[in-house]
Write a protein that binds this DNA or RNA. Structure first.
Length: 480
RNA sequence: GUCCCCAUCGUCUAGUGGCCUAGGACACCGGCCUUUCACGCCGGUAACCGGGGUUCGACUCCCCGUGGGGACGCCA
């Protein structure tokens, strides 16, 4: 299977955002191209004018770019098979459908949408399969010509054979068979002159030299139509690879209604491209061993079509959160700081003191599963602490006040204060005040950090610096 | 309703007839580490949908059920 002329494509429709299922399809295509040394094509399927959203193509490409999936050919980088936007290829489809018309493989249909709707309704009532009844399938040629010339709205349908059986191979499901009589006369060209997915997809895949069609399982049942088109044109079939669906927690097809499906939403909240890609690669695919932390380069090396799963996969946000947290904790600290910075700035926090900010990130990253959460784990280093009633009670206790007073005295007496000084004085003051454990540490952390739980005291004082530390003790002492 | 596809812990999955007393990861529970929480480390609970075959032997192969999903649009 390892051919060096592999050509695959990701062909999204520009709906305004990138669906996580789409990202998975894009990723698998990309990985297969990289693995085989093939070409990854990006093609925009915008043949539905009603669904077209302005700016969606640019947004889609920018999302793909930030996530690290780069196309070898596409609307942005060009290539020998352009244009890569289907709305700019209208005449190509028109030319091809004429060939089908001439060969009698397609026909004009004048049925109105209302008639079709009534037809389907009647079929449903009679518990029959819902499909076109072929009313216009055998219209006399002169009648067709007359109605066309009269300007009557029409579509062009595929004249699908009514007997026989279509059997085809799929890399994931092996053999799939469908009785031809159950395959509908699919509309190829709509009233507005635009092609439907089925026509555009087959024509473009052939013209663009696509060797492997890797896409979601929702397309499996329309493969017979596509195969019939390939044969009608006299073209070689691509290899079909239908990926298992991504599912909601209730196991229905992953949809907006049950959580976030827009990749942009995850990116906004600080899910790292590394984590998103790693996580999504494991949905429907598994490496040969038990590893599950992979960089994109490693995925490119390990990926193979024969380890793709058949069953649908639930998109488990819990595991994504764990994996994203893992990346936040294990990626280079400076890199994480760079990527975290915009979140603090958006919250109006001045983090221009880089050295301090990196320290904040270093302690905060142990607590979060996405970058957005870093702000709540780090803002107390930049903002005045606000105590709850319960916390204020602890701060006001005599022991607490004695700790603060003792520390202020010690720190003000010393011109410089190091981390080592903190460590030493913790021991010393504990002994002096006769305190230990939580009785000592909770009041201390509360005054400095605003919470009894959190990073260790030396880290807190290291980040705050002696001046701010002393002033926080004073503020604690002022609590009434 | 019709057709197609699928079926191992709650979830993602390993498993291609004996290596399975069914492995890993997330989540959950417990322990350790630690001044606390978190991180980390260690351990635990937890699954082969059911019934028939085939076979010396089935999680693995076949059939039938059952369950789930997808498609059935002049959407992709």
């Amino acid at each position: 299977m390892a051919r060096d002329d592999v050509r695959v494509r990701f062909a999204p429709s520009p709906t305004g955002y990138l669906h996580v299922g789409g990202l998975r399809t894009a990723l698998f295509n990309f990985l297969f191209a990289r693995k085989t040394g093939g070409t990854f094509i990006l093609r925009i399927e915008d043949t539905d004018q009603k669904r077209s959203v302005t700016g969606a193509v640019e947004k889609l490409m920018s999302t793909l770019r930030t996530i690290g999936i780069k196309d070898d050919e596409g609307p942005d980088v060009g290539g020998p098979c352009g244009p890569y936007i289907q709305s700019e290829r209208k005449d190509i489809y028109r030319r091809h459908v004429d060939r089908l018309l001439d060969a009698g493989v397609a026909y004009h249909c004048f049925c109105t949408e209302e008639r079709l709707e009534r037809l389907r309704e009647a079929q449903r009532r009679k518990k029959l399969p819902t499909m076109y009844d072929g009313a216009c399938r055998d219209l006399p040629a002169d009648e067709v010509r007359r109605r066309l010339e009269a300007g009557e709205p029409s579509v062009i349908r595929l004249r699908f054979p009514r007997e026989g059986r279509t059997v085809f191979d799929d890399v994931v499901r092996r053999k799939v068979a469908v009785d031809n009589e159950l395959v509908d006369d699919q509309v190829l060209i709509k009233t507005d002159g635009f092609p439907t997915y089925h026509l555009a997809n087959v024509v473009d895949d052939h013209l663009m030299g696509v060797t492997h069609v890797i896409r979601g399982e929702e397309w499996l049942s329309s493969v017979p139509k596509h195969i019939y088109l390939y044969r009608a044109f006299g073209w070689e079939l691509p290899v079909f690879v239908h990926l298992p669906l991504l599912l909601n927690p209730d196991r229905s097809k992953l949809s907006k209604r049950q959580g976030d499906v827009a990749v942009e939403r995850y990116l906004e909240r600080g899910y790292l491209p590394e984590a998103l890609l790693n996580f999504i690669a494991l949905l429907g695919w598994h490496p040969a061993d038990d590893r599950e932390l992979f960089s994109l380069e490693e995925l490119c090396r390990e990926f193979s079509l024969d380890r793709i799963n058949k069953a649908g996969a639930v998109f488990d946000v819990d595991k994504l959160n764990w994996m994203n947290g893992w990346y936040i904790r294990n990626l280079d600290l400076e890199t994480v700081a760079d990527r975290t910075r915009p979140y603090f700035e958006a919250a109006g926090i001045d983090v221009s003191d880089r050295e301090t900010f990196v320290k904040v990130v270093a302690v905060a990253r142990d607590y979060v599963s996405c970058l957005e959460e870093m702000v709540d784990r780090g803002r107390m280093f930049y903002e005045d602490i606000c105590f709850s009633d319960e916390q204020r009670e602890l701060v006001r206790e005599e022991v607490s006040r004695s700790i603060y007073t003792r520390w202020i005295g010690e720190m003000e007496a010393k011109p410089a204060w190091t981390r080592e000084d903190t460590e030493n004085f913790i021991k010393q003051s504990m002994k002096e005040l006769g305190l230990k454990g939580k009785n000592f540490y909770f009041p201390l952390r509360l005054a400095l950090f605003g919470n009894t739980h959190g990073p260790d005291i030396p880290s807190l004082i290291d980040i705050l610096g002696p001046r701010e530390t002393v002033s926080r003790f004073r503020r604690a002492l002022e609590q009434v």
